[in-house]
């Protein structure tokens, strides 16, 4: 039973976000949904209500009514959701609130990351310490075919814990993907014996992959994929694989092995949550 916190920005994209959330509730049993909206003008004024003239009700009430109405149109039952309007205190207080709230999964629309309220969610998704699902507004989510890119770091362990821990989350197929590189330290020699080195790196990666899959998913079949990155970036390889193999969802750790500062998002994850990558991504923190 999960509790979802959905971030809305009052653009027309909100309806596709709700559509996606609706689909999630059909696939898994969801205990509670929070529709959260952050009133951006709180950053430029102390008194949000006097910022707009002739409102006939306090702003948060107006927005609450609007969101409630939309949610009901999508068939959410009033007892199952709450609407949260964050109107003062800035991003910091919102982040604090989210991190300490009972919600265990946040949902963002991908479009909003770099356009519209980009400031807000770009920053918020870095500071929130809960798993975040980025859905695309132009596609409908499904959870049958799941791709798990891994570097076998401790973030991968968190990903596994999440997949195994969600009671109703039963994807039909799981594919574990590892993108390997030939270490740049071999650079001066690479031209002479590159095939050899790639083979070696692959054998090493296979060993790790077998270990990872057997340990993480002992009782189920998981497809194992090893791909040599070559000239491409890891993020591109992952995205290309996901699209060509019709993956529904990418689940990955917020970062790989390179850096342990949990505030920043690793470059691979950062790239995959960009809006030009038209695929839902679940980032595990």
């Amino acid at each position: 039973m999960a509790k979802l916190l959905v971030f809305l920005d009052l653009t027309p994209m909100d309806s596709s976000l709700m559509e996606n959330v609706k689909r999630i509730t059909n696939e898994m049993s969801i205990e509670k949904i929070g529709f959260c909206h952050y009133v951006e003008i709180q950053e430029v004024t102390d008194n949000v209500n006097s910022y707009f003239k002739d409102l006939d009700a306090p702003l948060d009430e107006i927005l609450r009514d609007e969101i409630t109405e939309t949610a009901e149109q999508f068939g959410f039952l009033p007892d199952n959701f709450e609407v949260l309007i964050h109107i003062r205190g800035g991003k910091d207080s919102l982040t604090d609130w989210v991190n300490n709230s009972e919600y265990d999964l946040c949902i963002f629309g991908k479009k909003v990351i770099h356009v519209g309220t980009g400031v807000f969610s770009g920053r918020l998704c870095r500071l929130v310490e809960k798993p975040i699902l980025f859905v695309t507004e132009s596609t409908l989510i499904s959870m049958d075919r799941v791709l798990v890119p891994t570097e076998f770091s401790h973030y991968s362990k968190k990903v596994v814990n999440l997949i195994n821990g969600l009671k109703d989350f039963k994807p039909k197929d799981i594919t574990a993907l590892h993108v390997y590189h030939v270490p740049p330290a071999y650079f001066p020699f690479i031209s002479e014996q590159s095939d050899d080195l790639i083979e070696k790196a692959k054998a090493h990666a296979r060993k790790k992959m077998d270990h990872f899959v057997e340990k993480s998913f002992p009782n189920r079949h998981v497809q194992r994929e090893l791909i040599y990155a070559g000239e491409n970036t890891t993020a591109k390889v992952i995205f290309d694989y996901a699209v060509t193999h019709h993956m529904d969802l990418v689940i990955m750790g917020v970062k790989g092995k390179t850096d342990d500062d949990n505030i920043l998002i690793g470059s691979v994850s950062e790239n995959l949550i960009k809006r030009d990558k038209n695929i839902p991504v679940l980032l595990v923190k």
């Binding site: 009052l10 107006i62 980009g118």
Partner: peptide, 18 residues
């Protein structure tokens, strides 16, 4: 990013809803 432009667009949306 361009905070002010964002806020302006945002205010526009809120006004419409109101």
């Amino acid at each position: 990013s361009e905070k002010e432009a964002d806020v302006e667009k945002y205010s526009e949306r809120v006004k419409q809803i109101a």
